[in-house]
Computed example of a mutant assay.
Amino acid sequence: MKYCRCVQYRSSIRVCEAQKKILRALGLRKLGKSKMLPICPSVLGMVHKVKHLVRMELC
């Protein structure tokens, strides 16, 4: 299974509650934190919804 590294690089202070919940579901809680996530349609959909807050790097 392929993985990607998601890094939160922007704050979630002025975003709607749904996007905050998506960040928590991805395991990102603070700026600069990263998480290794499997590449699957559900994860890619969540990353797409918060693409202005996170960076995705393929591993």
Rank of each mutant, 00 (worst) to 15 (best):
G45V: 13
S42C: 12
C40W: 10
G27A: 07
S11D: 11
G27I: 09
V15W: 02
A25F: 12
Q19P: 01
R55F: 05
G32N: 13
P38L: 02
S12K: 09
P41M: 01
E17H: 08
E17A: 13
G32K: 11
A18V: 05
M56Y: 05
K33F: 00
R10K: 11
K33G: 04
G27E: 06
A25K: 15
L44G: 01
L31C: 02
V7W: 02
E57N: 02
L44H: 04
M36I: 15
P38E: 08
Q8M: 08
C40S: 14
K49M: 12
I13K: 04
E57H: 00
L26V: 11
L53D: 03
L28M: 04
Y3A: 06
K30N: 13
S34N: 06
K33A: 00
A25I: 14
C6V: 11
A25P: 07
V50I: 09
L58F: 11
I22K: 02
C16V: 09
I39S: 10
L37E: 03
V54F: 02
C6Y: 03
E57D: 07
L23A: 05
K21A: 12
V15Q: 02
R55P: 00
K49C: 14
V7Q: 07
R14Q: 10
K33D: 03
M1L: 10
R5L: 15
M46Y: 07
C40L: 12
L44V: 11
S11M: 05
L44F: 06
L31F: 08
